[in-house]
Design a protein around this nucleic acid. Sequence first.
DNA 1: TCATTAACACGGG
DNA 2: CCCGTGTTAATGA
Length: 205
Amino acid sequence: MLSDFNFNYKHLFEEELLAEILSIGEYRKVKEGKELIDIGSEIKFMPLVISGAIKILREDEQGDEFEQGDTCAMTITCCLGKAKSKIRAIAERETELLLIPVHKIAEWMSTYKSWQSFILQSYHERMQELLDAIDTIAFLNMDERLLKYLNDKAIVNKNEIIQVTHKEIANDLHTSRVVISRLLKALEKKKIITLHRNQVHLLEI
DNA sequence: TCATTAACACGGG
DNA sequence: CCCGTGTTAATGA
């Protein structure tokens, strides 16, 4: 178990820091489904995953995971002040952890270069994930974009009958007509619109 | 999995 | 006949 810790983290940290982590970190082995952090709770520890995986959830939705080598950005923010957790963390399967008291995060930031890199790197990765998530919402969710497009058209025209061909929509949304035809058909099935030649009738605004 | 491309059939103008 | 539309197969990311 602790040899696993060495295996996963020894490239990251210098000897002294490894020793300090091992002496200060509280070893914990948790079963699948065990709740580690809840929304609204004060975070006192930063978990370093030795083996297994932790799932991060927001409200009741399913969310991301992190595994060995990762850590939680939420806990990093918490070391700056007494912020409450905005996330819930649950063991995805049987998981071994080292719990690091949050005050050590800031302390080691100034003492150990490798720790500083680790924290900044983790933060950078989380940031990247956020940006990717925004991209997904902004650019991949064609349903939503199409609906918004139709709504906007209806509003500027002050008319629920929109004069437009599938091809024009496809050009405006930078996709192909096949996709627009299919999505419009789906919207028609859901009784949100009706389709006519050169026209889309919006039933709900 | 989902988008794109190409191809085809159908129907209205 | 041309254009818009609806669908499908093949291919790629």
